[in-house]
Amino acid sequence: MIETVDLTKKYGEFVAVNHLNLHVKSGEIYGFLGPNGAGKTTTIRMLTGLLQPTSGKVFIDGINMEEEPIKAKARIGLIPDTPSVYPKLTGNEFLNFIAAIYEIPPEESVHKVKEILEMLELSHKADELIETYSHGMKQKIVIAAALLHDPSVLILDEPTVGLDPKSAKLIKDLLRVYASRGKTVFMSTHILEIAERMCDRVGIINHGTLIAEGTIEELRRRVGEGEGTLEDLFLKLTGGEDTKDLLKFLED
């Protein structure tokens, strides 16, 4: 469960995230949708304790991030937007390192690491340095690290960027299974199709403000009588109508 109360982040005068009130239930896949620069990454950094909010609160499974950061962080698995991980460790070493700092018991961690590497099809690369991995493989090793300690809240920042279709499908299935086990999945994306296909509920953020929230069906209804697509709604809400002019210009 993720809850935010009037979460706000200002960079000087600029308000990157504005009085955000989120409520993500357990067992739910929540899509955090917004154009580039909307404030998605900033929000995720505040949720995971990487950035201190200017004001407002974050609760992870009811634990206040500000007051008990260690307890809260133990429940989170993060997959950040850029998979920068220790280049001079091997995949295997990196996962064992994660197991140690999350204090996973050794008898558990041994087969878990093996299992996860196999599931993500990284076993053949496990003993090679991460710097030799491709972008997609780096992303997979980060996913493996996030899943290793079986967090109750999984937070992903634009997870499918850079993954091949097969891996993307794997991630989708994985998230489904994860949510069905009663865990919380929070995923930011600017790709509508992903939100539409995977998420139980969607929040749309623009200029740091949450401008619409609900299930896909609810949002559809708001567009009116089913004629428009989610894309039309998204563009309308986020002021992306201008792109239509651009398309027109290109076509002419």
Partner: peptide
């Protein structure tokens, strides 16, 4: 480069 790993962990 990888400080996020440490900062998001319960260390």
């Amino acid at each position: 480069e990888s400080i996020w790993v440490i900062l998001t962990s319960p260390l």
